[in-house]
Every structure is written in structure tokens, then in C-alpha cells.
Design a protein around this nucleic acid. Sequence first.
DNA 1: CGTCATTCAGTTGTGCACAACTAAATCGTG
DNA 2: CACGATTTAGTTGTGCACAACTGAATGACG
Lengths: 175, 175
Amino acid sequence: MTPSPTAAPSGPPAPSGPPGPGAPDKTDLPDSELLRLDHQVCFSLHAASRAFGGVYRDALKDLGLTYPQYLVMLVLWEDGPRPVKAIGERLRLDSGTLSPLLKRLEAAGLVRRERSAADERSVTVHLTDDGAELRERALAVPRRILEATGMTVEEVLALQGLLGRLTGALDRAAG
Amino acid sequence: MTPSPTAAPSGPPAPSGPPGPGAPDKTDLPDSELLRLDHQVCFSLHAASRAFGGVYRDALKDLGLTYPQYLVMLVLWEDGPRPVKAIGERLRLDSGTLSPLLKRLEAAGLVRRERSAADERSVTVHLTDDGAELRERALAVPRRILEATGMTVEEVLALQGLLGRLTGALDRAAG
DNA sequence: CGTCATTCAGTTGTGCACAACTAAATCGTG
DNA sequence: CACGATTTAGTTGTGCACAACTGAATGACG
């Protein structure tokens, strides 16, 4: 497939140590090495995310859902009717993404949107009967995903923890 | 910002052991538990990918590059002139994504596209002088990213390995 | 040589991500 | 009560991901 999937040359970068002092952390790699590493890492994450997307796409095709639509349905199945704002906070999505997505879910007959009487700015998203029933069919999806990862539940949980820490750090760094 | 950034409840899912025998692997969790777990995991990956995207967006703003454009430039900086097909294989991107992206890089004066004389179907992507010079400024990016992750180089390498295994398994499962 | 399958880049259409903005409703404070 | 700031959904515009398709060039085979 790929000409050099994990082309991590075992040869260490620059034999001549740069003027860095005796720092225990290896953050004093030469910039060019870091650039190469960056290539590997951001490619890895990008590729993993897209590979996951592909597997979900297959698994969700029967349900007629996309991956982000599935995320929204998971929130509604677990939490019940929620305002758009709450769904956005849960999934880190803003109205620019959610508004058209919810419109498509509504057009598919899975959800209903209602202006709140108490606060006319807010729109509460409800499941329709069809939307609620879809959960039964969705129950088969996670096992397919788990099998596709080739990981155990424990490994998945460990990965999830790692990703959680990472996301927290990145969010903190990016404001 | 977010109300539940790393909502990873330390309590394992089902304290009450389901009727599973002494299986070491926990793939016999009830479906509803797997659905909840799936919520956590796919959300985690999605969120991590987008958080990374945000940090790269900041770091690359100065260079006038998006994250996928940066990936393409990394390939060209490392490998030199490459046909579109080779770039796509390296990054797992098809022509539907690459063609407009490369057009934008060309409009920005960073690359040049030339029909191959030997095979008129193929288009070889070259760096312009500006594109080659941009590498100097890009050298500062990876360190910013590494700092944002709050991880050591070793941890990043471990994560990369984990993601690589995962992507391999997912690609195998999805064909 | 002629035909057909394959390869390669590009185009079209749908959907998501995100920035920047709009518009309406609500709230706080004077 | 009046007025300005904030909150909430929605819209617009740019860019990426991917499926499905087009069209030209190439290669294989009879």
C-alpha cells in the first residue's frame, strides 16, 4: 500500500550535539528532526481520524446517518431533549455546524425542533418516534467498530484516556 | 470553556458483572453499555482531531497554510517533486481533495504543476522558490505543537505507534 | 492495427468545520 | 422603564473529505 508507512529511521538525528545543555527532556532535537517527527505525528492522527470515519461511514450507512449525525443522536438517546446549545457544548460544535446538520436530521424525520416557550431564543431538539426507534438498530454499531479496531475494551479505554488528556492540553494551549 | 472537557468517569462501566463466564476479554458487555462507551470513544477521537486542528490552525496562520496544505508541503519538502498520485498515496487523499488544494497552493505561489512529458496523464508538483523558502519558517511549527500537547517526545512517539496500529487495523477492516 | 480496460487528474455534489457576521430575545444596570 | 451588553440560533463564505463521475492518455490483447 503505502510506500513508507512508518518510516521512522532508527538512525538518530544529529550525532553532533547542538549547544543544548544537559536537559533531560529531548525537546532539544534539531528543528529539522522535529519537522520530520511532526510529519509522522500529524499524519498519524489525521489518518487515524479518517480511518475511523471510514469505518463509521460503513457501519452507519444502514442507518442513513453520517458520523457527526450519529454523535448528535447519541447525545439525544442518552440525555433526551436538549437545546441546540447543550448539544453543541457536549460535542464541541457550534451553531454553524449544528444548524444545517439538525435541519437534515429533521428532514429525515428523526428529530423535531421546537422554540422554547420560556426563552424564545432557545430551540429544543426532540427525538421523533422514528428517531427513538433508531436506537435499537444503532445498538449493533459499537461492536462492529470495536471489532474493526482490533483492540480490547481495556485498550480502547486507555486510548480514550490518552486522547482526553491530549485534547485537554491542546484546548488549554489554544485558549 | 467546556463544561465537561475530559469527562472520563473513573468508574468502570458496569460494576455488576454480566453473565459472562471467566472470559478475559470484556467484549461481552451489554449492548447499551457498548453504546455509551462508543459515545465516549468516538467523541474523544473526534475531539482530539479537532483540537489538533485548532492548534495547527493557529501555528500555521503566519505561514498562510491550512493543516492539509501543510501536510502536502511536508511531503514536498522531504521528498521533492512528486506526481499528484504519489502525494495522494502518502497522505491517503484522493484527487477530489488534492486537485483544488494544489490549485490553491499554486495560486499562493508555493508550488508549480507540470504535465509530465513521459506520461501526459500525470502532473508533477514542484516547489517554487517561495515554497522551498517557506520551510525555514515552518521549522518553528513542530515545537509549538509539541509544547501545546504537553507531552514529551517519547510520549508522542508512543501515541504515534498506537495510532498507527489502530489505523492499520481499521484500514484492514474497511478494505 | 483496432479495441477495450486501466490509470490519472479533474469536476460535481453532499456534508462537515470553522470564522465572521446577523437578528432576535433576554438580562443587567442605571 | 430605557438602553446597552449578552445570549442563542441562524446565515454566509472558505476549505476539506469523499463518492461518483468525466475525459484524456496509456497499455494489453486479439
